[in-house]
Amino acid sequence: MALDALSDVDDEALLVLFANGDADAARSLNLRLTPRAFAQAMRMLNNRAEAEDVAQEAMMRLWKIAPDWRQGEAKVTTWLYRVVANLCTDRLRRQRSIGIDAIPEPEDDKASAADGIQDAARIKALYAALDDLPERQRQAVVLRHIEGLGNPEIAEAMEISTEAVESLTARGKRALSALLKGRRDELGYSDD
């Protein structure tokens, strides 16, 4: 399979191949990066349809920037994290401005029924609380604690210092804790 030949090629080199019209490079980048972009958007928005739109838009921007990509300046994945985060923030801002307070029910197709219900309740509560955080705090908390990125990577994606990331996540977690505290009983909280 042709994609095997490109498995050792790094993202930047694949972008160059893509810009030169290599269709295998397009396929390879799609397989590598679209799932990442989608997962990040899904975790930031908790809405499959919106997350798909964001992932498609972010990847479209990648295809368009490919011919002008500056080698060695930023990792492709970091650039993509930044674009997805910004697109998500735009959407969240719009949602807030038109007052949508309905948090979509989380999708769960693999956990057992009881765990699934508890997970779904927690996810719903978490995203409801995240909605009340300032945008930058929300972005930092999601990237750090749900997406699992390291502080230096988040700093690069958000174009701020590592100290600022630490401060944002700390404040974000404190605010989240305060917001969730009132809902723990109704969530049947029993994990500690």
Binding site: F38, A39, R43, N46, E52, D108, R122, I146
Partner: peptide, 10 residues
């Protein structure tokens, strides 16, 4: 819980 949520693209 959020991490466990299925996040595979269609």
């Amino acid at each position: 819980a959020a991490r466990r949520q299925a996040a595979d693209p269609s």
